[in-house]
Design a protein around this nucleic acid. Structure first.
Lengths: 224, 224
DNA sequence: CGAGTTTTTACAGGTTTTTTACAGCCAAGC
DNA sequence: GCTTGGCTGTAAAAAACCTGTAAAAACTCG
C-alpha cells in the first residue's frame, strides 16, 4: 500500500483529502504544520507528498528545497491558494512534480496523484507468481500461462489468503474466520468447495494437487 | 491547462482577451512591453503567443525573429492594427503561424487559437482513443467514428474517471466518491444506470461490453 | 412551467455461494 | 491386511446474491 503525506493547515481540506485517499486505497498521513510535516517526511518516507505553499512553521517552498537538497526524490504535488502567484519556473526549480490551484475536485487531485506516481515508478506492480500462475494484486487479475482467468470474489479472496500464508497448515476455522469473517463456525463444506474450484482453475493437474494441499484432519496448506 | 502569453500595449484589448481566454479554460499571461514580453516568453514557455506588431520596447517582428533564431517553436499569432502594412511573406519568414487584423471578434480569435494549437501539436491536445471512440478532454467532446456524441455531464464525468483509471477494478463506492463526491454510500444503483448509458453510447455492442466490463461482486473495470 | 437529466424502483435474468449427497480416501485399531 | 468410521472430493441442486435495464419519479435550471 502506498503512503501519501499531506501537509496543509486547512483542517477541512486535509480531512477531505484524507478520506478520499483512504477510499482509494492509499495510506494517508495528515499534518498541519510545515516544520512538523518536513520532519514527518524524513521519518515516514512516503511515496508521495501533497504540500500547501502557505504553511505555518515552514513554507511549502522551503520544504521542497530542503528535501531536494537532501537528495530526497519523493514526488511532490504543490497545492496553492487561488490568490498565490504561481511561478511554474520556481516550482520546477524547487523540484515540485505538479501543482494544483485550490479549490480543486478530489477527482482531479486523484488523477494528478496517479499520473505522478505512474511517472515516478512506471512498473512497480505487485505480482505474485507460482508455477505458471500470476496474480496481479493491483489489478485483481489472475492469469495462467499469460491467459487471464476469471475468479469469483470468494475464490480470489481465498487465493490471496493462501498467498499470504504459504507453507503453513490452515484450519477451516482459520480460513472461514479470515476470508469469510465468520465468528462462529457452522458445519459447512464451503471451504472445501472453494478449494476444489481453485484447484480446477489453477493447478496443472487438479486431481493431483501440487499447491493447494490437503492436510488430513486439519485443513489445507498452500505451497507456492 | 494551456498557457497563452499576450503581448499588446493596448490595455483594454489586453484585458478583454485575458478574460476571454480564462473563460475558455486557458491560463492567460498579459504583458504590455515588447522586451518584457520576449523575456517572459523565454521563462514561461507558453503554449501559444499573441503578439502585437507595434510594440514599445521591441517590435513583434523582432520578437518572432529572435525566438525562431533561438529555435523556440512556440506558435505565434500576430495581431496588427488596421493601418499597418501587412506583408504575408514577411510574416511567414519570421515564423508567425497566423495573423489577425484589428478589430476582431473574440470568437474569431478563439477559433484561430484553437486552429493553430491543433496544427502545432496535434498530439498535445489531450485526446484519448479507444476502439472507434475519441474523447477530447480539452473540449469535453466525445465522438464515435468521427461523429460527435452527446453525453450528459454525469456520463462525461464517469467516463473521464474510467479513462483516468484504466485496467483496474473500481468499486461502486470508489466511483460514487470520486465522481459524485458522496462520502457515505446510500444503497443506490446510480452507477449501474450510468454505466449502462455509457455502454449504449460508446460500446460497439452494448450487450457484449468490451471496454466497460463488469467485475462481478466488485464493480467495474475499464479497458481502453 | 418544461425540457433535459439524474436517481430510484422493480423485476427479470444471471452468477456466485452454500448446501447436499454420495463416492472414494485415509488413518488407526484389530 | 482388513475393517471401520470419520474425512475429503466433487457434481449438482438450492439458495442467496448481483447486475442489466426499462420506466417512473424526482430533481435541476433556465
Amino acid at each position: 500500500m502506498q503512503t501519501i503525506l499531506v501537509i496543509d493547515d486547512d483542517e477541512s481540506l486535509r480531512d477531505t483529502i484524507g478520506v478520499m485517499l483512504e477510499q482509494e486505497g492509499f495510506r494517508a498521513v495528515l499534518v498541519a504544520d510545515g516544520r512538523a510535516g518536513y520532519e514527518k517526511s524524513m521519518l515516514l518516507k512516503p511515496d508521495l507528498m501533497l504540500v500547501d505553499l502557505r504553511l505555518p512553521g515552514m513554507s511549502g517552498v522551503e520544504i521542497c528545497k530542503q528535501l531536494r537538497a537532501a537528495h530526497v526524490g519523493t514526488p511532490i504535488i504543490v497545492l496553492s491558494a487561488l490568490g498565490d502567484e504561481i511561478d511554474k519556473v520556481l516550482l520546477l526549480e524547487i523540484g515540485a512534480d505538479d501543482y494544483l490551484v485550490k479549490p480543486f475536485g478530489t477527482r482531479e487531485l486523484l488523477a494528478r496523484i496517479r499520473a505522478v506516481l505512474r511517472r515516478a515508478s512506471p512498473e512497480a506492480r505487485k505480482v505474485v507468481r507460482f508455477n505458471e500462475v500470476e496474480v496481479d494484486l493491483e489489478r485483481r487479475v489472475v492469469s495462467k500461462r499469460g491467459e487471464e482467468l476469471k475468479l469469483t470474489p470468494a475464490e480470489y479472496n481465498l487465493l490471496t489468503y493462501f498467498l499470504q500464508n504459504p507453507d503453513r497448515p490452515l484450519t477451516r476455522d482459520m480460513i472461514l474466520n479470515s476470508v469469510w469473517g465468520y465468528e462462529f463456525f457452522p458445519n459447512t463444506r464451503t471451504v472445501d468447495a472453494h478449494v476444489v474450484k481453485l484447484r480446477q482453475k489453477l493447478e496443472p493437474e487438479p486431481n493431483v494437487p501440487r499447491h493447494f494441499l490437503t492436510v488430513h484432519g486439519v485443513g489445507y496448506r498452500f505451497l507456492p
